[in-house]
Simulated scan of single mutants.
Amino acid sequence: MFRHHGKGRTLAHNLRLATLLSFVAGMVNICGVFSVKTLTTNVTGHFAFFAEEMVLENYTLAFVFILYVLCFLFGSFLSGLLTEITSRSKSNFSPALPPMIVEILVLILVWVYSYFYGTTGNNVHIIVSALLFAMGVQNSLVTQVSKSIVRTTHLTGLFTDLGIELAQLIFYRAPSEVKRLKQSIYLRVAIILFFFIGCIVGGFLFKYYELKTLLIASFFLIITLFYDLIRYKLYFLKRRIFTDN
């Protein structure tokens, strides 16, 4: 799921990656909405809020919204940095491992912080910043692994691309083009669907567990890492068996 890059990736690889991580992004997003009344998987709206506060001369709040954007940016930067360092080192670790560990730790720490300090006052800004950082890490990771084919933390671009490809499907006739378009449409619909499912499931879980729901999201990420590791080990075990024979 994480170890294949470029032409080595198939639709199945991208589907597994997209559905699992868009589901997690949906859970994180709804947790942010319910706990601190803020979207925490993209930064588009925060620019509008920044502009609003600047016009109203609320410069402190304007700075906070810029901080949110920078946290997402820093998460993306750190994820890219860790991925590049790991891929350039001649280790057997997946380049996705360090960013995934960072995201898991941040989600767990957000719950720990909210448990001890609550979700009111200035704690809101800390929680939002941390969740945006985590989503920056995730979005950068899946973008690099899939070569920009998969994005899991915001839907605006996905709906735009989906609309374009649905229009192209009406006019394209070459079998190869039709197949490529259908695969791309299928992938985008899967991402959108699982993001919504993540929001709904996360919303129901939040009613009972509040921000402890982030621990469940972290659990899904941990399972994803173990799944990828086990498939990797089985692949090389099969190669060794067939080579020996």
Results as ranks from 00 to 15, higher is better:
Phe236His: 15
Asn42Tyr: 06
Glu84Ala: 12
His46Arg: 00
Val55Gln: 13
Asn29Trp: 02
Tyr172Gly: 03
Val201Leu: 06
Tyr59Trp: 13
Asn245Cys: 04
Glu53Lys: 14
His154Tyr: 13
Phe242Lys: 15
Glu57Arg: 15
Thr44Gln: 05
Thr41Ser: 14
Ile126Cys: 01
Leu109Lys: 08
Met54Asn: 07
Ser176Trp: 02
Gly26Asp: 03
Cys71Asp: 02
Lys182Gly: 04
Tyr68Lys: 04
Phe77Gly: 01
Val33Ile: 14
Leu215Trp: 14
Thr19Ile: 09
Ala130Val: 05
Ile185Cys: 10
Lys179Gly: 00
Thr44Lys: 03
Gly6Thr: 06
Met135Tyr: 08
Ala167Gln: 12
Pro175Glu: 08
Leu187Gly: 04
Met100Trp: 01
Asn245Leu: 10
Lys238Thr: 03
Leu155Asn: 10
Gln168Lys: 08
Gly157Pro: 02
Gly45Ser: 07
His5Met: 11
Thr83His: 13
Asp161Trp: 04
Leu155Val: 04
Leu181Asp: 08
Thr152Cys: 07
Leu107Gly: 01
Arg180Glu: 13
Ile170Lys: 15
Phe226Cys: 04
Ser218Gly: 08
His125Trp: 05
Phe2Leu: 10
Gln138Glu: 05
Ile127Gln: 04
Leu169Phe: 12
Glu52Ala: 15
Leu73Glu: 10
Cys31Glu: 09
Tyr68Cys: 05
Ser87Asp: 07
Gly203Pro: 02
Phe206Gln: 00
Ser114Ala: 15
Leu39Ile: 13
Leu225Lys: 00
Leu221Phe: 06
Leu169Asn: 12
Leu61Met: 12
Phe220Trp: 11
Val110Glu: 06
Leu15Arg: 01
Val55Arg: 12
Lys233Asn: 08
Cys31Ile: 14
Phe49Ile: 06
Ser89Arg: 13
Ile197Ala: 15
Thr40Cys: 10
Leu225Ile: 07
Phe23Ile: 01
Lys147Trp: 11
Leu169Gly: 08
Glu53Asn: 15
Phe34Ile: 05
Lys182Ala: 13
Ala167Ser: 13
Asn245His: 09
Thr40Lys: 00
Ser94Ile: 06
Ile223Glu: 03
Thr120Trp: 05
Met54Pro: 09
Asp244Leu: 14
Thr156Ala: 11
Tyr235Gly: 00
Ala134Glu: 06
Val112Tyr: 13
Ala134Cys: 07
Gly157Gln: 11
Val137Leu: 15
Ala190Cys: 11
Pro99Thr: 11
Leu82Lys: 03
Val102Pro: 04
Gly75Phe: 02
Val201Gly: 02
Leu17Val: 01
Phe65Trp: 10
His4Tyr: 13
Ile191Thr: 13
Leu234Tyr: 11
Arg88Tyr: 09
Thr224Ala: 15
Val28Gln: 10
Ile230Pro: 01
Leu78Ser: 04
Lys238Gln: 03
Val64Pro: 06
Gly75Glu: 09
Leu73Ser: 12
Arg240Trp: 05
Gly80Gln: 04
Tyr227Asn: 09
Glu103Cys: 12
Asn42Ala: 13
Asn123Ser: 15
Thr120Val: 13
Ile223Val: 15
Ile30Gly: 09
Lys233Tyr: 05
Asn42Asp: 14
Tyr208Gln: 09
Ala25Gly: 05
Ser140Trp: 03
Val124Lys: 11
Asp228Ile: 05
Ile126Ser: 03
His13Lys: 02
Ser94Phe: 08
Leu225Phe: 14
Arg3Pro: 00
Lys238Tyr: 09
Val36Thr: 05
His13Asn: 12
Arg188Leu: 13
Val102Leu: 14
Leu215Ile: 06
Gly80Glu: 01
Lys147Ser: 11
Ser176Lys: 14
Ala96His: 08
Ala51Arg: 09
Phe77Thr: 01
Val150Lys: 10
